[in-house]
Simulated assay, not measured.
Amino acid sequence: MDIAGTLKDAVDSGAVPGVAAAAATDKGVIFEGGAGMLRPDSVIWIASMTKAVTAAAAMQLVERRKLSLDAPASDVVPELGSKGVLEGFDKEGKAITRNPQRPITLRHLLTHTSGLGYDTWNADIMKYRQATGIPAVGSCQNAALTTPLLAEPGERWEYGISIDWAGKMVEAASGQRLDRYMTERLFVPLGMSDTGFAIGPAQRLRKARMHTRGPGGFTVMEHEIPQTPEFHMGGGGLYSTVSDYLKFTQALLMGGGPILKPETVKLMAQNHMAEGVLCRPLKSQLPHMSTDLDFVDGMKWGLSFMINPTAFPGRRSADSLTWGGLANSYYWIDPAKKVTGVWATQLLPFYDPRAIAAFENFERAVYASL
C-alpha cells in the first residue's frame, strides 16, 4: 500500500477518526497528507511530543554554558532541592518522605530518572494528589509540580513531570518565559509558524477536535490546554501541525542546524540512563486517558527520546529515536537510514492498539517507498 493509502485505510477501517502524517529523508520532504477530518496543517495537541522541544531548548543553554547536565538542578530552580522521596503513607493517609541522598540534575530530568512521576501511570502519585488536593499537571498550575520523588535520583526510570521542571530550568537560565524562548530560539529559526502553547486566531480555525473511542464508535470531547497558564507545560503543552513538527525532527535528523550543534544532537541520541536502569511497564491509573504500556526489551532513554536497541523489520533502524503524545501522535528519527516521520490523530486513550497498528503501517509504507 502507498503512504497515502495507509492514512485512508486507517480512517475507513475505523482505526482512527482522522489522521495527518508527514515524512522526510536527508534529501527533503517525501510525504505530507491526511485523511478524514485531518490535514498536514491541522492544529493538534502534540502533548508529550513537546518534551523533545523542551529538551532542545535546554540543550541550547547547555551549549551556551548557562545550564549543566550534571550540576544540581536546584542551583537553577531552588524548589527542586526541597523534594523528598516518598516512602509511603501513614494511617491518616499523610505522605511519609525522606531526604534524597543525591541532588536531581538536568540529565536525570531529561531521561526520566529524577524520581518524579505522573499520576496517569503511578498509583502513589495518584494517592498523593488525592490526599493533598493538588491539581493535575494538565491544569498548568504550579502546585501540580509539588509531588514528591518516587525513587532516588538516577536509580529508576519513572515517566513523569521531569521535563516540566526542565522547562522551568530553561526559563530560569534564559530569563524568558518558555513560550517566548521557544518562539525566538526554535520556532522562528525553523519556520514553525503553527507551533506554540497558545492557539492563535488563524490556528483555531484549523484546530482538530479531540475524540474518545467507545463501543459505538468515536465521540467528540471538549479538550484544551489552559491558554493563560501559571506555567507553560514543557512536558506536554504545545500545539503544532505534522508539517511544523517535521521541520523540528528534520533538523535533528540533519545534525541540528540551525538550532543545535551536531555534537549536541549526537549526545542527545545516546543512552543516558545509568547501568542497569531500564524502561519499566506503565500501568494506567486513568484508563480513559491511557492504556497500559509495555516496552520492547532493552529500550533506553537519551536526552528526551526513547531509543530502540534493535531494528524493527521493515521499519526503523536500531538506535532510532522516538516518542509520542497522549492523543495518539507519534514520531521517529532514524539517523542510520536518514528518515523521519510524524503521524498524528486526536484520540484518547493513549497507545490505542488500532491507532498504533495504523501508525506502524504508515511507517512501513514510508520505508517501502525509499
Rank of each mutant, 00 (worst) to 15 (best):
Q285C: 09
N271T: 08
S284R: 11
L260H: 01
G276S: 02
Y245D: 05
P287S: 01
H272W: 06
H272R: 11
S290N: 11
M254S: 14
Y245P: 02
T241E: 12
R280L: 11
G257N: 15
D244S: 08
S290L: 09
Y239T: 07
S240W: 12
S290T: 14
M268W: 05
M289T: 04
L253S: 06
A251I: 12
L246R: 07
M299N: 10
L282G: 06
P262F: 07
L278R: 14
Q250G: 06
Y239Q: 14
L293D: 04
F295Y: 15
M289V: 04
M254Y: 07
L252E: 04
M273C: 11
V277T: 03
S284T: 15
F295M: 11
A269V: 13
N271M: 10
M273Q: 15
L293N: 07
L282A: 14
T264D: 01
P281E: 06
M299I: 14
V296D: 06
G237S: 01
Y239V: 07
T264S: 08
M268L: 07
M299K: 09
G255T: 11
P281D: 11
G237I: 03
M268C: 03
L267W: 08
L252C: 05
V242F: 05
K247Y: 09
G235V: 04
Q285W: 01
A269D: 10
A274T: 06
L267Y: 02
V265M: 02
A274F: 00
C279H: 05
K283P: 00
M289F: 06
E275I: 12
V265C: 04
T291Y: 14
Q285K: 00
A269T: 12
D294E: 09
H272M: 05
S290R: 06
L286E: 13
G237N: 04
S243I: 02
P262E: 09
L267E: 15
S243C: 08
S243D: 10
L267N: 10
L293P: 00
A274G: 15
D297A: 13
G276K: 00
G276T: 09
M299Q: 13
L267C: 06
G236N: 05
L238D: 00
L267V: 04
M268S: 09
G256N: 02
L278E: 10
D297Y: 07
L282D: 07
T264M: 01
A269L: 10
H272V: 11
Q285Y: 02
V296W: 08
P258Y: 13
G276W: 10
M289L: 10
S240R: 09
L286S: 11
E263T: 00
E275M: 08
